[in-house]
Every structure is written in structure tokens, then in C-alpha cells.
């Protein structure tokens, strides 16, 4: 099937890309194209021009700087999966990447494209929410920084202006008493869109108590969100079976599922309980 007509511009620097985006109000960025190409085929977008940002050097690297992991907006899911520094500092991103689509898509799909597309089932969002990630948006007037939770507004909606590019995902490197887990449930074991994502992170005190917790849920609401009541229940507490069960119940109760409400509520509760139990076991083992 032929794609609708558009022009394709291939700037070689970020500045040039930003200038083109500002000059052409009907232009859209394209990175891996794994969302955009199918969307163009369906006719859900009809841009006059596409601006290829996939090769921009400013967007392509993963670095560690001043206590942060800086992931360029053009980094692919495969690069995230293969990066030893990511595996060491934020293993939850490695886990997320290993459950994301499959190799053929992972080699194209970018983290920036995933967040800007802001699909309800976007897998990177819940993992990044528990890490307290922020994102950098570059525009003609410079770069602004937003917490990811603020950037994501709703299904397919973000705070990005049409002339901005997502240049960087900033993840504060968690302490060495940080424990995380991620689980994705879909219709198949691998290579599917999420029906439910649950991500957890527990920062533990040296005595093993939970200092604070983050629990994020994806794919059951218009956009991934944090289950704050469940998080609050764990803060300051020992992660015993009773505390975990109640936090998991609250996580389930937080869901506003798109369909199959009761079933999904129960699954979220079970997944949260499993992840937290696993984390609690590792805290005891490691302390």
C-alpha cells in the first residue's frame, strides 16, 4: 500500500531540526516510525512534511552525569536493553525493554517516540514514573524540563508543543538501597501490547524498612499513572505480608480500567503483591 504523500527532511543537527519544525507548522518529527508509519497508513495523521530526527547525534546517546542517567530521546529500545550502565543503575529499564515488542521493532523504536506517542499501553512510562524521571523538551526558545508525570496528560496527549523535540529523558540514579521490579501482562507471553503494566520501586532504610515506595500502573487508564495511596501505605513501614497485601489492594483499587474492570483490578493487585514480595525478599537477603 502506498503511503500518502509527504516530504521528508533529514536535518543533521538538533538546531536545524528545531528550525525546520518551527518554520513548518504542518510537519511532524519521525524517529523509528513504528508508530508513525502505521498511523500514516491508517490516515490518522496527514503531515505535509516529516522531519527525520532518528540520526541526530544530540539525541542518540546514554550518559551518566551528576547523579543522573541521561537517555537521549532518539535512543532505541534495543540500545537501552543492551546498555550495561542501564542494567547496572536502573535494571527496571532493562526489564521493561526486554518485554517491549520484539527485536525487529526494538531496533527502530525510540524512547522519545514512545513517550511522545503517549499510548495508554506505552511500556516505558510506568517504569520511568517509578524512577521519578524528567524529560527535556527543546524548542526555538531553548529547553524546558518537566517531570514525566506532568508531561503525560492523557491518551495520545502530552504537554509537547508542535515545534518541540523530546531531547532527553533524565533519570536520577537510584541509591544502592533501591529495589525495583516490572511486569507486563498481555494476550501472549512475548511480543504483544500491554494489557497491564505494573512497576514498583522501594527505597529501603538500612534496617530494611521502606523509606518510600513508587508504584506505577500502565495500560489500564488513558495514560500510565502512580498509585499514590498504595505508595503511602508502604512509606516508613516494614514490608511484611500484611503491609504488602494492603498496598497491593490499594494499587488494584486505584485502577480505572478501560475494559474488564473487575478482572483487571484483581490482576493488578496480584501482580503488585508478587512484585513487592519479591522486592521484600531481596531487601532482607541483601541487608
Amino acid at each position: 500500500m502506498t503511503l500518502p504523500a509527504f516530504d521528508l527532511l533529514r536535518p543533521t543537527t538538533l538546531d536545524e531540526a528545531l528550525r525546520l519544525l518551527s518554520e513548518m507548522p504542518d510537519a511532524l518529527p519521525i524517529a523509528g516510525g513504528t508508530n508513525l508509519i502505521p498511523d500514516l497508513r491508517k490516515g490518522s495523521h496527514a503531515p505535509g512534511s516529516l522531519i527525520d530526527v532518528s540520526g541526530l547525534p544530540e539525541l542518540c546517546c546514554i550518559r551518566r552525569k551528576e547523579g543522573h542517567l541521561l537517555i537521549g530521546g532518539g535512543v532505541t529500545i534495543a540500545e537501552l536493553l543492551d546498555d550495561p550502565m542501564v542494567a547496572q543503575t536502573t535494571p527496571i529499564l532493562t526489564e521493561m525493554a526486554s518485554s517491549f515488542a520484539h527485536t525487529l521493532v526494538r531496533n527502530r523504536a525510540t524512547i522519545g517516540g514512545n513517550l511522545v506517542a503517549a499510548a495508554p499501553c506505552c511500556d516505558s512510562a510506568p517504569a520511568l514514573l517509578v524512577l521519578d524521571a524528567e524529560i527535556d523538551l527543546a524548542g526555538p526558545e531553548g529547553t524546558r524540563r518537566l517531570p514525566l508525570a506532568e508531561f503525560l496528560v492523557g491518551a495520545f496527549t502530552t504537554r509537547r508543543e508542535s515545534n518541540e523535540l523530546l531531547t532527553c529523558v533524565r533519570v536520577p540514579v537510584p541509591s544502592d538501597r533501591s529495589y525495583t521490579g516490572f511486569v507486563k501482562m498481555g494476550l501472549r507471553k512475548i511480543s504483544c501490547m500491554a494489557k497491564i503494566d505494573v512497576a514498583v520501586r522501594v527505597e529501603a532504610h538500612s534496617d530494611g524498612r521502606c523509606e518510600f515506595a513508587r508504584i506505577a500502573i500502565g495500560a489500564v487508564a488513558p495514560i500510565a499513572y502512580r498509585a499514590e495511596a498504595a505508595e503511602a501505605h508502604l512509606a516508613g513501614n516494614v514490608l511484611d505480608a500484611v503491609a504488602i497485601a494492603e498496598a497491593a489492594r490499594l494499587a488494584g483499587a486505584s485502577a480505572h480500567p478501560r475494559s474488564g474492570s473487575e478482572y483487571k483490578r484483581q490482576v493488578i493487585e496480584a501482580l503488585a503483591r508478587r512484585l513487592l514480595t519479591d522486592v521484600a525478599g531481596r531487601i532482607e537477603g541483601g541487608s
Binding site: L8, I30, G33, I37, P38, D52, S54, L104, V105, R108
Partner: peptide, 10 residues
């Protein structure tokens, strides 16, 4: 990679 999702110019 899936060549159906790559633009030839890319």
C-alpha cells in the same frame, strides 16, 4: 528490522 516501517530515504 522490519523494512515496511523504514522510509527508503532513511
Amino acid at each position: 528490522m522490519n523494512s515496511c516501517m523504514i522510509l527508503a530515504w532513511q
